[in-house]
Amino acid sequence: MTGEPLLKVQAVETYYGNIRALSGVDVDVHKGEIVSLIGANGAGKSTLMMTICGSPQARTGQVIFDGEDITRLPTHLIARKRIAQSPEGRRIFPRMTVYENLQMGAGLDNLKYFNEDVEKIFTLFPRLKERQSQRGGTLSGGEQQMLSIGRALMARPKLLLLDEPSLGLAPLIVKGIFEAIKKLNKEEGLTVFLVEQNAFAALKLSDRGYVMVNGKVTMSGTGKELLINPEVRAAYLEGGRH
């Protein structure tokens, strides 16, 4: 990869109180790439996703987006740079309808492109169309995941962050969601940085990947390289879900 990356995470350290969750993380994501981050539970993957969005902020190091240092920006201003996240736990607004949740995603443009974009989301996830006037809290896990991704997409992101989009979902739904991500990347050039427990599917989908252990990136490479790497296979693939 040449040229300036769209997202550059540089020597980032993030703390929860006195506990260090990230210790010197470097990650690059280039425009148009799908990059995945894999690692065991508690490795710090979600912390990195949230640090990119400034909540919590990195104590040291830098997050550079589109050539601009965003490390110290408040979260809502980072969002306005068009970094959208479908965070861990999905965080659907439970007492808003599906439709309103999607409207929240389109808030940056004051709903200017809402009608146009919501149709795309409904084509991508027809289930959401059927459920549009239902309250978010009453959706099934898979539907909430679709809504969370759909809501992030409504922001017309330059960078989409997905934290475990497959968590707790049936294989068929996971397949659908991964296909949707691939399609958006291919057809619209959407840049995606995703965290996955399902390392096999994630690496297969991705241009490149990073492996995180205990708050540090220990390995990186193309998706293919990581898929055949014996250490990765032993730790995250063999015996894991395929």
Binding site: S55, T75, A79, R91, F93, M96, M104, G107, R151, A155
Partner: peptide, 15 residues
């Protein structure tokens, strides 16, 4: 309402 239901998520959406 978003801030009421999930303040952090609201911020992630630019509120």
């Amino acid at each position: 309402r978003a801030t009421e239901q999930d303040r952090k998520m609201a911020a992630l959406l630019g509120v």
